[in-house]
Design a binder for these strands. Sequence first.
DNA 1: GCCAACGTTGGC
DNA 2: GCCAACGTTGGC
Length: 150
Amino acid sequence: MQYWLMKTEPDVFGIDDLATVGTEPWDGVRNYQARNMMRDQMQIGDQVLFYHSNCEMPGIVGIAEIATAGYPDDSAFDPEAKYYDPKSDPTQPRWYRVDVKFVRKLQRTISLAELKEEQVLADMPLVRKGNRLSVMPVAPSEWKHILDME
DNA sequence: GCCAACGTTGGC
DNA sequence: GCCAACGTTGGC
């Protein structure tokens, strides 16, 4: 089993929204590194740190899990859809998504500022300046360390 | 294949 | 709202 971190903007879709719907297709990711991870590596049951970005207190707010392996993101095929990409062909999809399932909310937000202070987390792309990856792998030791901070 | 222009992310 | 960092695009 693998661990991941996925970013989302709470104004668009946050942990409370996930708690409400239960399972959500993670569509609209238009970054090749993130695409490759969703398409090639994510498996049902993988655990996810749910991260809020672009908000008052950026940080980890909950736990989710992967509910489907990667499958084509058909929001790329629909000219009416927000994430339409005319270069993605249904016979050879360019973009993929997974379904993400709510597990639980953390008792508190583990803020980005706190995460940055942890020396053992210094290698995470999340805390590195200028890194914009919205999906990233998390080492088992990092996973444990972060949840111990809860 | 280079690289300037442009768009997006996301912290602050 | 600003702006640094970075990815993508497109002219050459």
